[in-house]
Design a protein around this nucleic acid. Structure first.
Lengths: 97, 97
DNA sequence: TTGTCATGCAAGTCATCACTTGCCTATGGT
DNA sequence: ACCATAGGCAAGTGATGACTTGCATGACAA
């Protein structure tokens, strides 16, 4: 649902997480925590990131795959491509001859 | 700022307003109120819509022009085109040969 | 099995946001 | 001048959301 996508993108921390996954796919929860802390100076608890990831997954922006006791997260840009074209002109330039 | 754009898009009512302006540019506050009420069944107060329009204008998604005692609102899709490309591949397909 | 590491669930707190109500300003018609 | 119309400002309320703390679960190693 588009509603979930927009709400997921509303939070700056979640956008940072998407940035991180765009740079390196398949990170675990702790990896994301560490990189957000070191690179962006975000001092958030593990659960905070976990909840953000749950929101992103519910919106379809992040796909997860479990492997043993690890859970890897991958970015999924599918929903992103559809949401904004709603207000851009109905005739998309890509499909034009 | 991208922050303002995402926050502006987070609310369903504001997205409806953008829909309305995308369909017909240059509407006044009361026109938007009326059309939201009749077409979408939204029973919101005038101030509610006014505050939403202020948020949209602060985000650069809506441009306003005063004319007498009327204030007309126009959709501005500029910020929309930039925000999502952040996570789509750095190489934009439009510029590819 | 026992300990440890990676993650999940639940409740509680604090801030932000959407919406309302009431009053005020200003423009235009008569 | 008068009154109605279009819009703005401000404070207050209720709900949603971000974050924390504490405990529980499941997997791997010794």
């Amino acid at each position: 649902m588009a509603e979930d996508v927009f709400k997921a993108l509303a939070d700056p921390t979640r956008r940072r997480i998407l940035d991180e996954l765009a740079e390196r796919d398949g990170q675990s929860l702790f990896e994301i925590c560490a990189r957000l802390a070191t690179k962006h100076g975000l001092g958030l608890s593990r659960q905070a990131i976990s909840q953000h990831l749950a929101v992103l997954e519910a919106a379809g922006l992040v796909r997860t795959r479990r492997q043993g006791r690890y859970k890897f997260h991958d970015l999924n840009t599918g929903p992103l491509e559809r949401i904004v074209t709603r207000w851009l002109r109905p005739d998309v330039p890509e499909s034009a001859p």
